[in-house]
Amino acid sequence: MYALFEEAGKFLAGRILSEAETSAQIELDSGKRVKAKAAHILLRFEKPAPAELMAQAQAVAATMELDLAWEFAPEDEFGFADLARDYFSDNATLTQQAGALFALYEAPHYFRRAGKGRFKKAPAEILQQALAAIEKKKAVMQQIADWAEQLGRGECPQPIREQLYKILFRPDKNAPEYKAVVEASRATHTAPLELLQKAGAID
Results as ranks from 00 to 15, higher is better:
Ala130Pro: 02
Trp147Ala: 10
Asp90Ala: 10
Pro48Met: 10
Ala148Cys: 08
Ala73Tyr: 09
Ala57His: 12
Asp82Cys: 01
Leu83Arg: 03
Asp90Pro: 02
Tyr110Trp: 12
Lys120Ser: 14
Glu71Leu: 15
Asp86Lys: 15
Phe119Pro: 06
Pro48Asn: 09
Lys137Asn: 11
Phe88Glu: 03
Gln56Gly: 02
Pro123Trp: 07
Arg85Asn: 10
Ala55Ser: 14
Arg153Trp: 14
Tyr110Lys: 07
Ala69Val: 04
Gly117Trp: 10
Arg118Leu: 05
Ala130Gln: 11
Ala55Gly: 04
Pro108Glu: 06
Trp70Thr: 00
Leu66His: 04
Ala130Gly: 03
Gly79Asn: 02
Ala122Asp: 04
Ala103Trp: 01
Gly115Cys: 13
Leu94Ile: 05
Lys136His: 10
Pro123Arg: 09
Ile144Met: 00
Val140Pro: 01
Val140Cys: 03
Gly154Phe: 11
Gly154Asp: 10
Glu155Asp: 11
Lys121Asp: 03
Leu101Gln: 09
Gln96Asp: 07
Ala62His: 06
Ala59Phe: 04
Tyr110Met: 05
Gln150Val: 01
Pro50Val: 12
Asn91Trp: 09
Ala92Tyr: 07
Leu68Gln: 11
Ala133Trp: 04
Pro123Val: 03
Lys116Gln: 12
Ala114Leu: 12
Ala57Tyr: 06
Leu42Ser: 04
Ala81Cys: 05
Gly152Arg: 11
Phe72Arg: 15
Ala114Pro: 03
Lys137Val: 03
Ala51His: 06
Arg113Val: 14
Gly117Cys: 09
Ala81Gly: 02
Leu104Gly: 04
Ala57Phe: 08
Ala92Ser: 14
Glu65Gln: 14
Ala139Trp: 00
Ala122Leu: 07
Glu77Lys: 10
Asp76Gln: 13
Ala92Asn: 07
Phe78His: 08
Ile134His: 06
Ala55Asp: 15
Arg85Gln: 15
Ala145Trp: 02
Gly117Val: 11
Pro50Lys: 08
Ala81Val: 14
Ala145Gly: 01
Gly115Ala: 11
Thr63Trp: 01
Glu52Met: 08
Leu94Gln: 03
Ala114Arg: 09
Asn91Arg: 14
Gly152Pro: 02
Ala132Gln: 15
Ala145Phe: 00
Ile41Ala: 09
Ala98Asn: 05
Pro108Arg: 06
Ala132Leu: 10
Met54Gln: 13
Met141His: 06
Pro74Trp: 09
Gln142Ser: 09
Pro48Trp: 11
Ala130Trp: 08
Gly115Phe: 09
Arg112Phe: 09
Glu65Ile: 07
Thr95Leu: 05
Ala103Asp: 00
Thr93Ala: 11
Asp86His: 09
Gln56Asp: 12
Phe45Thr: 08
Thr93Tyr: 04
Val140Asp: 06
Ile126Val: 13
Val60Phe: 09
Ala100Glu: 01
Gln97Val: 01
Pro74Val: 12
Glu65Arg: 15
Glu71Pro: 01
Ala55Leu: 14
Ala92Lys: 03
Gln142Gly: 06
Thr93Ser: 15
Phe88Val: 08
Ala84Phe: 04
Ile144Glu: 03
Lys120Met: 15
Lys138Ser: 02
Phe78Gly: 05
Gln142Ile: 08
Lys138Leu: 00
His40Pro: 03
Ala51Arg: 07
Ile41Leu: 13
Leu104Lys: 04
Thr95Asn: 02
Gln129Thr: 08
Gln142Asp: 06
Glu77Thr: 14
Gln150His: 14
Ile41Tyr: 07
Pro123Asp: 02
Glu75Leu: 11
Ala133Met: 10
Phe72Tyr: 14
